[in-house]
């Protein structure tokens, strides 16, 4: 007998060591997330994957599944809160989708679509953030960084480098790169590194590949992120 948890009233199996996110994904249930990626150590910072475990809010991507858990995921309350958290991510940065190459392929935008987010709700911060176009092949637009640390983890865990890090405290958090000049061109980042391709938003882009797929024909223009996410992430465990 395999162990099970209850997810929105449905019994699903899990294996020891699995997080709630992993168990849900394996069972074909999508839990919204941005900082989580099945290939890397879970981070638990975006808080979009918050689920109620026996009445208590937990991050599904870091919380271990355990026998007898009653987990709520797809509730109106959680959806509303997730929308507000997504709106927080939008207002703290500068997310001008019409002028962003990632539009249509952007997970932040896709999660917003999925949650039927139509406005920013909160006052906008309009922080002053820079771009780093120094690297011959890769561009950083700090305006779009959501501090998910996927590039940090991909560089460390997959590429065996330490190109990226998150620095600063509180609302002053920002992405930094590992070079004396502080510029991307002086790091050992290669355009083929996983870290250069992992960004869920348009903060890290590969140069000279823009608009190869027209706006309107991109991934999330016609497919919801729950479907896309399950399709790509379910295979990972196998």
């Amino acid at each position: 007998m395999s162990k099970t948890i209850t997810l929105d009233g449905k019994t699903i199996p899990f294996e020891d060591g699995q997080t709630i996110m992993q168990a849900a994904t394996a069972a074909g249930v999508y839990i919204p997330h941005l900082c989580h990626h099945p290939e890397f150590t879970p981070h638990g910072s975006c808080k979009l994957c918050t689920v109620k475990v026996n009445g208590r809010n937990c991050s599904a991507c870091t919380f271990p599944a355990a026998e007898g858990q009653d987990v709520l995921n797809n509730t109106q309350e959680l959806t509303d809160d997730r929308k507000k958290i997504t709106q927080m991510l939008f207002v703290e940065g500068n997310h001008f989708c019409p002028s962003c190459e990632k539009s249509g392929n952007c997970q932040l935008q896709a999660v917003a679509y999925h949650l039927n987010m139509l406005d920013d709700h909160f006052p906008l911060f309009y922080p002053h953030r820079e771009m780093d176009a120094s690297h011959p092949d890769v561009l950083i637009d700090h305006n779009r960084c959501i501090f998910c640390t996927l590039c940090v983890r991909a560089s460390r865990e997959h590429d065996g480098k330490d190109v990226f890090a998150i620095s600063g405290r509180g609302i002053n958090k920002h992405l930094i790169v590992n070079s004396e000049s502080g510029q991307l061109k002086d790091t050992d980042l290669d355009m083929h590194d996983k870290a250069a391709h992992i960004c869920p938003t348009g903060a890290i882009l590969i140069k000279r590949t823009g608009y190869q797929v027209p706006i309107g024909q991109r991934i999330y223009d016609h497919h919801e992120i729950d479907e896309v996410s399950l399709l790509t992430e379910q295979h990972h465990g196998e």
Partner: peptide, 21 residues
Amino acid sequence: FAHESCGFCTPCRVGTSLLKK
């Protein structure tokens, strides 16, 4: 609290600044 938030998670990083505003 807005000054001392470590900034790790969205609700606190952005939320404490929004609370302040």
